[in-house]
Amino acid sequence: MTVTLVLGMDIGGTSSRALVADVEGHVRGAGQAGGGNPISRGLAGITAIRDALRAATAGVDPADIKAAVFGLAGGEVAMRTPEIVQALETGWRQAGLLCTPAMVSDVTLAYVSGTDAADGTVVVSGTGAVAAAIRDRTVMRAADGHGWLLGDHGSGFWIGREAVRAVLITLDRDGSLSELNRQVLRDLGVPDADRLAGGRTLTNAIIETAHRIPPPELARLAPLVLTAADGGDQEATLITRRAADHLTASVNVIRQPGATSPIVLGGSLLTTPNPLSRALRTSLGRTWPDTKISTSGEGAAAAAWLASRHLPDISALASRQLYTRLLTTKGS
Rank of each mutant, 00 (worst) to 15 (best):
L306V: 06
S294V: 10
Q183D: 14
A58C: 06
F157Y: 15
T47M: 08
N274H: 09
T138Q: 14
G297K: 06
A117R: 14
V225N: 01
A48Y: 01
A316T: 11
R173H: 11
E179T: 11
A133V: 03
L171V: 12
V77Q: 10
G34P: 11
D116I: 13
R242H: 08
F157K: 05
L43P: 03
G258S: 08
Q256T: 12
T108Q: 12
I263Y: 03
L247P: 04
Y323A: 06
T282A: 13
I65L: 01
G25N: 02
I293H: 04
V60S: 06
V3G: 09
W148V: 15
D61L: 05
A243T: 07
E217V: 03
A318C: 05
L224R: 12
A67N: 02
G145T: 08
D194A: 15
R220T: 13
S332M: 13
P38L: 13
I213T: 00
M79I: 14
G154R: 05
R141G: 00
P216A: 04
N204E: 14
R41E: 00
L221W: 09
G198L: 13
G175P: 09
A249K: 08
G154A: 11
Q94D: 15
R182H: 08
G74Q: 04
S268L: 10
L226P: 11
A229E: 03
D290W: 00
A18Q: 02
A30D: 07
T209S: 15
L72W: 04
R165A: 15
I254K: 04
L276V: 08
A166N: 08
K66V: 11
D136E: 14
I239M: 09
E24W: 14
L43Q: 05
D10I: 12
M9Y: 00
I11Y: 03
T108M: 05
M1P: 07
E24R: 15
S105K: 00
R309L: 15
S296F: 09
Q321G: 14
V124D: 00
G231Q: 12
T81Y: 01
A236G: 08
G74L: 04
G198I: 10
S261M: 15
L72C: 05
V139H: 03
A18G: 02
G175T: 02
P216C: 07
T81P: 00
P262C: 09
S315L: 02
G189S: 05
L224N: 03
P216D: 03
L280C: 06
E162W: 03
G126Y: 06
M140D: 13
D313Q: 08
A133Y: 07
P101A: 11
G96D: 02
K292H: 08
A304E: 04
L98I: 06
G198S: 12
V122A: 02
S315N: 01
A307Y: 07
S268Y: 01
S308L: 09
I213Q: 01
A95M: 04
L98K: 13
S178V: 01
V184A: 07
I314L: 15
T81S: 11
S261E: 15
V27T: 10
T14R: 08
A18F: 01
R93F: 02
M1G: 11
G45S: 03
L196G: 06
S15Y: 13
A219F: 12
Y111D: 00
E89M: 13
I39N: 13
D106A: 10
A133K: 10
Y111G: 00
A63N: 08
